[in-house]
């Protein structure tokens, strides 16, 4: 079974490190390996660190953080030997890296499978950065590769500017979905994935501090009857306007096979489920008010 990888990109100061720390706090038993390469002095909050050994930091809860310096591929190749039993890898790219290139590099490795590409952008500065003569095209190429764009620091701009910026980012990231946020406070599931595909109500989405997640996000549990045209369902969930940020479910396909459907933004992946899995609910999450619950329900009905 390959290890899921999330690529976390975005320019300097967009909040990558804050997001990573938030995810480590919310790991809740998931053993995460965070691979970082940036010029930040300290990539991890001190209170999370329980030890260090060379270029590896031990994080409470069985997680680790390694710096990969010049060679991400080497670090990924070595990881299973150095630390067996990792559940998930987060790659925090350098501020000028193109996350799309990192994602395709992950695709070369058979031990790993790309889960999604999350790009952070600073609501206050992203449009100015995108107009910069030097880094402008780097910013837009980063956004274009995103499955999810976390538009951070929305508390620093007016609602009007936020809405304009969301629209602008949506145009720059035609294959992704935009999630407005403050201090990177998004439900960990958005980045780390939904756990089992089992039952989950919206009140279990966790955001750190601030407004309760249930105010901002909503989750729908669908229980399609019998066999499902999984690809048709996936296309509906990832269509523009569905508002789906994440979805996961164990489904029985038309050929009778048990498969896992996973959606991140507008990317979906269908893979065979482990032999011991049982079909369960399809959990779909999105922004409250933007998730087209009725449309999603209809899609599930039409696909079965």
């Amino acid at each position: 079974m390959s290890v899921a990888v999330t690529v976390i990109g975005g320019y300097l100061g967009a909040g990558k490190t804050t997001l990573v720390n938030h995810l480590l706090r919310a790991a809740d038993g998931l053993r995460l390996a965070v691979l970082v390469n940036d010029f930040g002095a300290l990539p991890i909050d001190r209170d999370l660190i329980v030890g260090s050994d060379g270029d590896t930091l031990e994080i409470s809860g069985g997680c680790i953080c390694c710096s990969y310096g010049s060679d991400l591929m080497e670090a990924l190749l070595e990881l299973p030997r150095r630390r067996p039993g990792i559940d998930r890898v987060l790659i925090e790219t350098s501020g000028v890296a193109l996350p799309g290139m990192v994602a395709s590099a992950v695709g070369l490795l058979q031990d790993y499978a790309l889960d999604g590409t999350v790009v952070l952008a600073d609501a206050e500065t992203v449009r100015r950065q995108a107009a910069d003569a030097y880094i402008g095209d780097t910013i837009t190429r980063q956004l274009a590769a995103a499955d999810l764009v976390i538009l951070n620091r929305c508390d620093l701009v007016s609602d009007a500017v936020r809405d304009e910026t969301v629209q602008w980012v949506e145009a720059e990231a035609p294959n992704g979905r935009v999630v407005p946020a403050e201090r990177c406070a998004v439900p960990a599931e958005l980045v780390l994935g939904l756990r089992s595909g089992g039952d989950r109500a919206s009140n279990t989405l966790r955001t750190p501090g601030g407004v309760a997640a249930s105010v901002l996000y909503e989750a729908v549990d669908l229980r399609p009857d019998g066999a499902v045209d999984v690809e048709r369902l996936a296309r509906a969930l990832t269509a523009s306007g569905s508002g789906v940020l994440r979805a996961k479910g164990f489904l029985r396909d038309k050929e009778g096979r048990l498969v896992i459907l996973q959606v991140v933004g507008r990317r979906f992946e269908i893979s065979y489920a482990p032999a011991d899995a049982t079909p369960g609910a399809l959990v779909v999450i999105g922004l409250r008010g933007q998730l087209d619950c009725a449309g999603v329900g209809r899609a599930a009905y039409l696909s079965s």
């Binding site: 300097l12 010029f39 501020g95 193109l98 030097y134 880094i135 780097t138």
Partner: peptide, 15 residues
């Protein structure tokens, strides 16, 4: 061909 790649961000170079 599209423009090339930055290997180091300007902020880090200035520092």
């Amino acid at each position: 061909a599209p423009n090339g790649l930055w290997y180091t961000p300007p902020e880090a170079i200035r520092d």
